[in-house]
Design a binder for these strands. Sequence first.
DNA 1: CATTTCTACTGTATCGTTACAGATTGCATT
DNA 2: AATGCAATCTGTAACGATACAGTAGAAATG
Lengths: 347, 347
Amino acid sequence: MENKGNFGQTASAPTARERPTLKTIAFMTGLGVTTVSRALKDAPDIGAETKERVRMVARQLGYQPNRAGVRLRTGKTNVIALVLSIDEEIMGFSSQMVFGISEVLSGTPYHIVITPHSHSKDPMQPVRYILDTGSADGVIISRIEPDDPRVRLLTERGMPFATHGRTDAGLTHPFHDFDNEAFAHQAVEKLVERGRRRIALLQPPSKLTYYAHIRIGFQTGLHDYGAEEVPLRVNTDAPLADIRDIVEVMMRSANAPDGIVCSAGSAAIAVNAGIEAAGKALGRDLDMVSKQSVPILNWIRPEIITAQEDVRQAGREMAKAVIARIDGVEPELLQSVSQPTWPESGR
Amino acid sequence: MENKGNFGQTASAPTARERPTLKTIAFMTGLGVTTVSRALKDAPDIGAETKERVRMVARQLGYQPNRAGVRLRTGKTNVIALVLSIDEEIMGFSSQMVFGISEVLSGTPYHIVITPHSHSKDPMQPVRYILDTGSADGVIISRIEPDDPRVRLLTERGMPFATHGRTDAGLTHPFHDFDNEAFAHQAVEKLVERGRRRIALLQPPSKLTYYAHIRIGFQTGLHDYGAEEVPLRVNTDAPLADIRDIVEVMMRSANAPDGIVCSAGSAAIAVNAGIEAAGKALGRDLDMVSKQSVPILNWIRPEIITAQEDVRQAGREMAKAVIARIDGVEPELLQSVSQPTWPESGR
DNA sequence: CATTTCTACTGTATCGTTACAGATTGCATT
DNA sequence: AATGCAATCTGTAACGATACAGTAGAAATG
């Protein structure tokens, strides 16, 4: 009579080694399914010895909770959605981020689901989908704008998330960001140190928040170190061929710069091509500083002065932040900014 | 009495616009939940008019089946797992593959879950996890070996999958592969066309299947076009610094090659560095042919002769193959090999 | 000794969906 | 009029987990 609940239900498992469930453990321990469930989550109303017994059997069986069961009953998906822009992305930017995220998630029950979208299309669509279908417990997004509508929506709907990049409209949320202001400032410094004074900036598209950071760092740099800007009318999102052509024209012109600051590693390759197409050479006629997320530029031209942005680390930070947010930690405590590092160039 | 099933259950939805379920539609149409379920999957025992009505209401409500419900009941996860090696991966190889896969999956109910692992560790672990927990309907794996234990296990357990690369042990399974044999053969041809006769090969690690393909293509190429091999004792998986150093030594030696075939884009960058460190120049002292998955090499040195491997296309093919396999299509019909393309170099 | 209070455990209902085994109705057959 | 049979529709149970509302027994209380 004590096992009335199990009786006749788990008359199973004679031959086939099927996946164990709570019922299996309940049957083996002689306990009720509820008790097993509560024992495994260390509930206070279960005896210490019972918990121990349940845990042993569970480990023995290699029990892993059925995700669908949990999700259906509790709504918890154990999924983190990574929203990625499918365009651009020449270098392994997002791979690195994915790997950073996975590193953190591998010690947790979370899975990572990639939700891609074309950023030329509606960037809200994937976010809306996730919210409407409740298909994730947390979200990670990139390419943040100062008053990002995705951030607004996610906040409004109470969905935990972290961003790669900051907003700038009084929104408080977890983020990880690279200190682009410091990068641009230091970049100018490096150039001036080498005697360069007329500096061009290949900047990100102006709608992204870090455009402003780059601009500010660049301009205070110019001011602090006494240099001037040579305008460059193209941004890092442009096709590489366009960047090269425009840089070539600029380098051939009368007021060609003697220094260039480049906000993206892939673009730096095109910039370099433009420079060389104009018959100029790095280190001789001018210097270039570039940010990169993958250490590749110095393999191409050792003369490029590079700052490293550790995107894998960013992935780790954001994963930790989302999980913390899911666990109720205040957003204010989940914000971090990483500094550029300047590996000794050359090899 | 007709609505006894719904009665008292769906007395809900007064204010809050909650996510619609079958029950919601059942309530609105006055039908039973079962009928709605069957109507939506176009079952033969539901009247045409009823189906139409149900579909209209469902569309109106923006109904999307609850994944946890479906998964719990049917075991269908609607997930494709992409198993990725977290190491290496300098360039955006896997991003491109992910994007290719997503393109195909975006028109389906499938989600893509990234399951990363360190390929220095046990490569079976993620596959075992997926099988044991039934966490996906299909799997995509790369870095295939001739007698790949993952392929064996997945086949044995009846899990649909596709591989990036072939096996070579009588295993029949869906795959997409790049024709590395053709690439290597054509690469030799290109070099010989340029008057090169002493050719080195930077080959993949020998445990991977395509090592043999590259070797065969290379050797028949040498034979067909009358060239000889200069041995190069390092493979594409080696750290870039090692590759450069070894290539430099080779290029300084008495019997330096006058042509190099390189099986990976990232490695080509290091090879080039080694060549230049030895004071040699591409196009003058020697030529290099390299495969690349992202069109970057010619930005670095226009002289590199490049073959394009379209990894995004590979992602598409594999996604289509896994889904077809899930739908019961025979593996024999889901195998494809893509040919190298040789874009006009220069720009 | 009766009553309350804990401790430790359990049954039932439920999440959303679908498989299965009926129902109900109308019509054609005998 | 009884029977058979499609054509449509429906209720119930189940997938695995957990929230909730208990229950049984022991111990503490009055």
